[in-house]
Amino acid sequence: MLKEKIESIKKRATDEFLGAGESQKLYEAKVKFLGKQGEFSQVMKEMGKIPKEERPQFGKMVNEIKIELEQVYKDQESQIRKKELDQKIETDFLDLSLPGPTAGQGGAHPLSLVTSEIVNILGRIGFSVRLGPLIESDRYNFEALNIPADHPARDMQDTFYVDDQHVLRTHTSPVQIRTMESENPPIRIVAPGPVFRKDHDASHSPNFNQIEGLLIDKEVSMADLKGTITFFVQEFFGKGLKTRFRPSFFPFTEPSAEVDCQCPVCKGKGCQLCSQTGWIEIGGSGLVHPNVLQASGIDPERYQGYAFGFGIERMAIIKYGIDDIRILAENDLRFLGQFKL
C-alpha cells in the first residue's frame, strides 16, 4: 500500500519536475512533493504502520527514492536556471553606443604640458626647479647678466618698465643670478616661467614663457652643453634627432650658440615647419660669461658653467603644430579641450 503510494509520488513528482518549464513551477512542485508539508513527508509519517522488521529495508528504499527525486529536481533546476539566464542575457541589451556621463577629464594648458615635460626630462639628469619674481630689478634682469645700461644688447629685448629700476623680466636668466648668489656650486637648475617683451603679433606674444637651464661646476665645456641639449631634444622631440650649434651673441655667455635641432616633423628631410631646411631653431645657449659669474659672487677662476634657454611657446608650436600663438591666451575650450594629454 505504502509502497504503491511512494511509487506513485515518485512517478508524479518526476513528471512534474521534468514538466516544469520555469523556476517558479519547479519550486512549487518541489514544495508539493519534497517540502516539509509535502507528500513525501506525509508518507513518511505513515512509516509506523510498517512491520518493524521490514522497516530498515523499506527505509532504505524510501531514502533512495528521495535522493533520486532530489537529483531529478537539481538537474531540472540547473537546466531551467541556465535557460532562464540565457533568456535574460538575450533580452538585457545595453546600448553602449550611447554616451557615458559627461564632464570626465579636463586638461592642462599646452604651455604647462610642455613646461612639465621639459622639467621632468631635465629632472632625470639632476636639474631641479628654481623660480623667481616676474617684476625684476634692473640689476638682476640686465646689469648682473653683463648687459650694462646703454649697452646695445638691450635693444635685443624690448622691455616693459614698471619704474626706473624695475622691469617685467625679459627672460628667465635673472633666476641664474639669484641662484648663484644664494647657493654654492655645483649648481644644476631649471627655471621655467613667464617673461615679457614689447612685441605682439602672430608669432610674438608680449607675455610668453621661457625655460632656462644653468649648470655650474669645476670644468664645463661646450661639449657638455651640447650633450645635455641633445639628450633633451631626443627625449622631448624624438630619438635620433641631431642638434647643431650656430655661433651667436648673448651678453651673458661666451662662447654663445643658437641651438637648432633636426625638424621633428620631417626628420631633417625638409618640410613646411622647417622651411625646407631640415632644421628648426629652438633656443640659445653658451658658456656662462666670466662677468656673470663674478657678478653673482662665483670665482670664474674656480668655476665654469653653461646656460641654455628655450621658448615654451616655440616648443608647443613645434610639438603640437600650433600656427598662431595668440590662440594660447584665448582659452577657447574647443582648443583647450584637445589637450587631455
Binding site: 631641479s128 661646476d217 657638455d224 650633450g227 641633445t230 647643431r244 661666451e254 650658440a257 658658456l287
Partner: peptide
C-alpha cells in the same frame, strides 16, 4: 677676454666639431 677667443676659434673652425657629452651626474643641489 680669453672666452672671446674661445668663441672666435670655435665658430670659425666650426661648432659642428663640438661633440655631445652628458655631464657626469653628481648630487644635485
Amino acid at each position: 677676454i680669453p672666452e672671446d677667443l674661445v668663441e672666435e676659434f670655435g665658430r670659425l673652425y666650426g661648432y659642428k666639431h663640438i661633440p655631445d657629452n652628458l655631464p657626469s651626474l653628481q648630487d644635485a643641489p
